[in-house]
């Protein structure tokens, strides 16, 4: 019973994802590109960088990068804490 329920839920979610993908707008036509056009036009004068992706990562959307750096730090601290407790238990 539980197995059948799992299979049914999986099939439902899979069908939902595939149908949603087939009914999206065509590949290669982004619907809202005003913000990215602003970045592409003004990047060389505002940030003076040729790589627009780096300018977006570190300047226009620096908060995302800050959160991402925090996640990496948290992962390192988590792995360290996990293995350190194990070592102290074994002593």
């Amino acid at each position: 019973m539980k197995k059948a329920l799992t299979v049914a839920a999986f099939l439902l979610v899979a069908a939902f994802l595939v149908v949603a993908a087939t009914t999206m707008r065509p590949f290669g036509e982004p619907s809202h590109s005003e913000m990215d056009d602003y970045f592409l036009v003004n990047c060389q004068t505002e940030v003076v960088a040729n790589n627009v992706v780096t300018a977006v990562v570190f300047d226009y959307r620096g908060f995302d990068t800050l959160g991402e750096a925090t996640v990496l730090f948290a992962a390192v601290v988590g792995v360290l804490a996990l293995f350190r407790t194990v070592r102290e238990d074994e002593r």
Binding site: V47, V48, A49, N50, T54, A55, F58, D59, T65, A69, L72, F73, A75, V76, V79, L80
Partner: peptide, 23 residues
């Protein structure tokens, strides 16, 4: 060029390389 972008690249590069290496 790029203002603080190269400095931030070095900071984040240092952070990522040492973070992955210590993991």
């Amino acid at each position: 060029s790029g203002g603080v972008l190269p400095l931030m690249n070095w900071a984040v590069g240092l952070k990522v390389m040492t973070g992955i290496a210590s993991i």
